[in-house]
Design a binder for these strands. Structure first.
Length: 834
RNA sequence: GCGGAAGUGGCGAAAUUGGCAGACGCACCAGACUUAGGAUCUGGCGGGGUAACCCAUAGGGGUUCAAGUCCCCUCUUCCGCACCA
């Protein structure tokens, strides 16, 4: 058959044709209305920042999601597979500075360019509800949500120490600071500044965000663990130590080990603790030492060296009273006590805490044992002894209690005595959302000289971001330089006022965009709650692990807030979340600075979108890092060429067999149909949970290898046309999630008219897939000695007989009788010989 | 320091429940064919050995008829958190 000049696989002759067809038929990927009988499936991939071009990480992310969406379509689901643009953010401003292009223009033209790339890749997105976060019809709802949060005390303003990136010229959220550096500028150390900032009170949901993780069993453990650590729940006790000689003053400490309180031999305050000033009044020397300590700490914090600086303390010469024992203990200021955590003050128990031990040793503070290790005497208990498996000693009336019991008892005593209580502390901080940047959502507040902070009324939304603006990098909010924006009137009194000039963190935009996808044109509300009831929660969310904390915790918070606003009924945004691995090359993440970036456009130009997508799924399981090897793309492309030739040669036979059936296949037909149905079963299983598309694709390759090896039997008619038709049809359907262009091309070559996507996924016929003869390895003492062939239904006795009758086995046994024969049905035989 | 993931041929990887280690692909080697192409086809390809066989899943121990898979110890890499009381 191959003797004539044969048509070669040329993606550039196939893909553009289908791109045009699909672009002209947006209904193809459109979700159906909620009234449909079909079950719904919401598959979501994280929306890209419109930088101007997709990178390989995007290609991988969207290839995974698109494969799943296509599979679910073929399984008969009403699939929602939307896309949008996380379009606010700093790069647009930087580009404006560099090229003198307005951020809006720059962003929108990037979006247009990337949309073309998506089209080239053949991504099946429903663009009907495209979301572009920088447009007023989206960000007005950011403002609307802000006002709802403000009404409920979930949005508030406070003076606070904040992270400042000088290159961004703005504040960063804690989540955007990585190793003391800016998440966008890896080389830039984040400074600390004191600024008046807007915050979202995510801490109000700390406990619920933590509890919810237990139920999110469709989320990767890694993500759940990271979020748990980030929330950082810690159970303990707050206890007041009265300050000696200072009227009514108390130092409240937080401890997780109140059972060790009789061993507290000092109290340590953070240098910034408000009481420090009072306690050091008139002592200029100590004040100077403390401010030097604060400075040093600041530098250390800024260079991410906090853990490395020596523990230092300054004794204030003042005393506090242990409320349980009445003992006087010295008050110190220590550089390792953080004002931001707990109460900013601790009791120091050197006998039972590593850090306190180190500190006390350095400064000669008394070290006292108050817990004895179970089974050891006081003297034999190691020092410091930090375990909670112990018994109280030297603790007055509490002696003899075990640690846990003592904690409860001591808490009770504190509560009754009014000097303390059980307390849960979180590491999670409120979410700072103010940004001193232009390209973001304006915060809808007005500052009136008479009425102070006044929210902009709903009917005046959106507060529009002015478009004509000169971007400078002077620090401070650019919007403050725009009088038409800045100057306004007070909603309450109409008097001259000024607007809030900070804009919102772009993570606000991405915290709820996926709700807007269900109703993006709604101008009465962020979305219709009835639609949300149908579509939510998201069935599968897919994105990079770099968002495990940031975006995924904010989204969960936002969902809970919306639920409490009565807008939705789901507690969590997504039942299943998947974090795909990074795309790396030559052992490192692709980056411009390393010069190892591979452009998707180049790959598409050379090998076609199908091969590029398929390789990104074939080279590694989706959750692992993927090492990009161009030879591998070439290999995938060669595979597609083989399929192309195969289908092209025999499509006429298959097309001619339309409507024909076959009966009781034998020989080659049976062998090929068996392989086909095994392959269907394998891929269907992979889609149902494991998502190891690399092995799915390997299974298709195996099938194709067998089909090609047997193609003589297609030409000769040994394999009936109806069988050829089933083989090719099913093969094409199984390729559809991975190589949509070729699948569409083949589908039409096979004489099919409907869309591949609307064609049911093939079903594996278990009877056909079953082998009638199987190979069973025979081991002697666990070592492989022979392989026997038996019928699939062979019982234990038959297998045993066959194994013992095998010539090689007889030789190996050399007359000995096995003391034990292990038979694992269908798997192996192991003969144990002494 | 704490927490998590991982370590299998020259490379990417596979082995779904403890049951034939290396499927599938890349690279490479040999051959065929040729319209000399970014081809295509056939065969080979963990290490040692002429062979029968032996050895091999980071290293060491263990459990088991049987271990890449389970347990203990050690090493290495990556990721997250980190003076959090």
């Amino acid at each position: 058959m191959a003797d004539e000049k044969e048509l070669r696989y040329d993606p550039s002759a196939i893909e553009p044709k289908w791109q045009a067809k699909w672009a002209a038929n947006p209904a193809m990927y459109a979700a159906e209305p909620e009234t449909t009988e079909k079950p719904k499936y919401y598959v979501l991939e994280m929306l890209p920042y419109p930088s101007g071009k997709l990178h390989m990480g995007h290609v991988r992310n969207y290839s995974i999601g698109d494969a799943l969406a296509r599979y679910m379509w073929m399984q008969g689901y009403n699939v929602l597979h939307p896309m949008g643009w996380d379009a606010f953010g700093l790069p647009a401003e930087n580009a404006a500075l560099k090229n003198n292009t307005p951020p809006r223009e720059w962003t929108l033209s990037n979006i247009a360019a990337m949309k073309v790339q998506f089209q080239r890749l053949g991504m099946g997105f429903d663009w009907a509800n495209e979301v572009t976060t920088c447009l007023p019809d989206y960000y007005r709802w950011n403002q609307w949500f802000f006002l709802r949060m403000y009404e409920r005390g979930l949005a508030y303003r406070k003076q606070s120490k904040v992270n400042w990136c000088s290159l961004c010229a703005t504040v960063l959220a804690n989540e955007q600071v990585i190793d003391g550096r800016c998440w966008r500028h890896e080389d830039n150390i984040v400074e600390q500044r004191n600024l008046e900032q807007w915050f979202y009170r995510i801490t109000r949901y700390a406990q619920e965000l933590l509890d919810g993780l237990d139920k999110l069993d469709g989320w990767p453990d890694k993500v759940r663990t990271m979020q748990r650590n980030w929330i950082g729940r810690s159970e303990g006790t707050e206890v007041d130590f009265a300050v000696e000689d200072l009227d009514g003053a108390k130092i409240r400490v937080f401890t997780t080990r109140v059972d060790t309180i009789f061993g507290a031999t000092s109290v340590q305050l953070a240098p910034e603790h408000p009481l420090v000033a009072k306690l050091t009044a008139d002592n200029k020397d100590i004040e100077l030492q403390i401010s030097a300590m604060i400075d040093e700490q600041k530098v250390a914090r800024e260079t991410d060296n906090l853990g490395a600086i020596d523990k230092q303390g300054i004794a204030l010469g003042r005393y506090a009273i242990n409320p349980y024992s009445g003992e006087r203990v010295p008050i110190w200021v220590a550089n390792y006590v953080l004002m931001e955590y707990g109460t900013g003050a601790i009791m120091s128990v050197p006998g039972h805490d590593e850090r306190d031990f180190e500190f006390a040793t350095k400064y000669g503070i008394e070290i006292r044992r108050v817990i004895r290790q179970v089974g050891d005497s006081e003297e034999d208990t190691p020092m410091p002894f930090v375990s909670e498996e112990g018994i109280l000693i030297n603790s007055g009336e509490f002696d003899g209690l075990i640690c846990g019991e003592a904690q409860r008892k001591l808490q009770q005593v504190a509560a009754e005595g009014g000097f303390g209580e059980a307390k849960v502390t979180f590491r999670l901080r409120d979410w700072g959302v103010s940004r001193q940047r232009y390209w973001g959502t304006p915060i809808p507040m007005v500052n009136c000289p008479t009425h102070g902070l006044v929210p902009v009324p709903d009917d005046q939304l959106p507060v529009l971001l002015p478009e004509k603006i000169e971007i400078t990098q002077q620090g401070g909010s650019p919007l403050a330089q725009v009088p038409e924006f800045l100057n306004t009137t007070c909603p309450k009194c109409d008097g001259p006022s000024t607007r809030e000039t900070d804009t919102m963190d772009t993570f606000v935009d991405s915290s709820w965009y996926f709700y807007r996808y269900i109703d993006a044109k709604n101008d009465k509300a962020p979305f219709d709650s009835a639609k949300a009831r149908y579509w939510f929660p998201i069935d599968q969310y897919i994105g990079g692990v770099e968002h495990a904390i940031l975006h995924l915790i904010y989204s969960r918070f936002w969902t809970k807030v919306m639920r409490d606003l009565g807008m939705i009924e789901n507690d969590e945004p997504a039942t299943r979340q998947f974090s795909q691995g990074m795309v790396i090359k030559d052992g490192a993440k692709m980056s411009k600075s390393r010069g190892n970036v591979v452009s998707p456009d180049d790959m598409i130009a050379r090998y076609g979108a199908d091969a590029t997508r398929m390789y990104s799924l074939f080279a590694a399981p989706p959750d692992r890092d993927l090492d990009w090897q161009e030879d591998g793309v070439a290999g995938t492309s060669r595979f597609l060429s083989r399929v192309f030739r195969l289908v092209h040669r025999y499509a006429p036979i298959a097309a001619g067999a339309k409507g024909q059936t076959y009966s009781a296949p034998t020989g080659t037909s049976l062998a090929l149909l068996r392989k086909l149905h095994q392959t269907i079963a394998k891929i269907t299983l992979d889609f149902s949970g494991r998502w190891h598309f690399n092995t799915s694709i390997a299974a298709v390759m195996e099938l194709v290898n067998e089909l090609i090896a047997a193609e003589g039997a297609f030409a000769s008619g040994e394999v009936p046309a109806a069988v050829v038709a089933e083989l090719l049809r099913s093969l094409v359907l199984m390729l559809a999630p991975f190589a949509p262009f070729l699948a569409a091309e083949f589908w039409s070559e096979l004489g099919e008219e409907g869309e591949v996507l609307r064609t049911p996924w093939p079903v594996s016929d278990a009877a056909l897939a079953k082998e009638d003869e199987i190979e069973v390895p025979v081991q002697i003492n666990g070592k492989l000695r022979a392989v026997i062939r038996v019928i699939a239904e062979a019982d234990r006795a038959a297998i045993e007989a066959a194994a013992l009758a095998d010539e090689k086995i007889i030789e190996w046994l050399a007359g000995k009788t096995p003391v034990k024969i292990i038979i694992v049905q269908g798997k192996l035989v192991n003969l144990v010989v002494k």
